Simulated scan of single mutants.
Amino acid sequence: MKSDGKDIKSNTDKLYKVFSNQHHAFPKASSDHVHDVVVHEGGWETSGSIKLWTYTVDGNVEIFKEKMEIDEANKWVNFSALEGPVLEQYRSYKISFQVTPKSEGGGLVKITIHYGKLNDNDPPPHKYLRFAINVVHDMDALLKE
């Protein structure tokens, strides 16, 4: 499942830096959605580190324990689910963000969710894609101030 891309007005290098190694900034930028992010293993800037997120999606507070992978060359950041409610519905779940600058300024954030359903009748993770788009919008607004 992919988004068409979210246009951003903020500096793409700054936004990529937040997604790759400044997750502690998300609660400030998007407090209605992200409440806390803490390092569980590794560090803020370490590919392979594990973090625990507390957030609200569709009115429910959830946790997301994830392992982060960073691809500096392609400006990709992947978050693979290790624990949390998302794994009660999907046997696998990984969300990826790619930040790409535009020649006329600003940029584009592409969001891709890779998932495997536990049951055929489970819905695709649309609520998590909406959540991610809202968080990108909130961070973009904070960074362009």
Rank of each mutant, 00 (worst) to 15 (best):
residue 122 D to G: 01
residue 42 G to M: 07
residue 1 M to P: 04
residue 113 I to L: 10
residue 12 T to K: 09
residue 64 F to A: 00
residue 52 L to Q: 09
residue 40 H to Y: 13
residue 132 A to H: 05
residue 132 A to L: 05
residue 93 Y to T: 01
residue 120 D to A: 15
residue 39 V to Y: 07
residue 124 P to G: 12
residue 54 T to C: 07
residue 4 D to H: 13
residue 17 K to Q: 15
residue 32 D to T: 09
residue 55 Y to R: 10
residue 34 V to M: 01
residue 96 S to W: 02
residue 75 K to T: 07
residue 45 E to Q: 07
residue 38 V to A: 13
residue 68 M to G: 12
residue 24 H to Q: 15
residue 132 A to C: 08
residue 129 L to I: 08
residue 38 V to M: 14
residue 11 N to L: 08
residue 87 L to E: 06
residue 64 F to T: 00
residue 6 K to E: 11
residue 118 L to S: 03
residue 87 L to P: 12
residue 58 D to H: 09
residue 96 S to I: 04
residue 130 R to E: 08
residue 132 A to I: 05
residue 103 S to L: 15
residue 123 P to Y: 05
residue 73 A to G: 12
residue 128 Y to A: 10
residue 90 Y to A: 03
residue 78 N to Y: 15
residue 130 R to I: 00
residue 45 E to P: 00
residue 46 T to G: 00
residue 25 A to Q: 12
residue 132 A to T: 06
residue 121 N to F: 15
residue 33 H to R: 10
residue 5 G to W: 01
residue 72 E to W: 08
residue 76 W to N: 12
residue 79 F to L: 05
residue 95 I to M: 04
residue 57 V to D: 05
residue 79 F to W: 02
residue 58 D to P: 08
residue 23 H to G: 05
residue 90 Y to S: 04
residue 44 W to A: 11
residue 106 G to N: 02
residue 121 N to L: 13
residue 101 P to S: 08
residue 66 E to P: 09
residue 59 G to L: 07
residue 113 I to S: 06
residue 124 P to I: 14
residue 50 I to M: 02
residue 54 T to E: 12
residue 24 H to I: 14
residue 144 K to W: 06
residue 116 G to M: 10
residue 56 T to N: 09
residue 12 T to Q: 10
residue 36 D to R: 14
residue 104 E to C: 02
residue 26 F to S: 00
residue 67 K to V: 09
residue 30 S to Y: 01
residue 115 Y to A: 04
residue 35 H to V: 00
residue 100 T to M: 12
residue 142 L to N: 01
residue 106 G to E: 02
residue 113 I to M: 06
residue 8 I to W: 03
residue 133 I to K: 13
residue 15 L to S: 07
residue 52 L to S: 05
residue 133 I to N: 11
residue 33 H to A: 11
residue 48 G to N: 07
residue 34 V to D: 00
residue 29 A to Q: 02
residue 52 L to K: 14
residue 83 E to N: 10
residue 48 G to W: 09
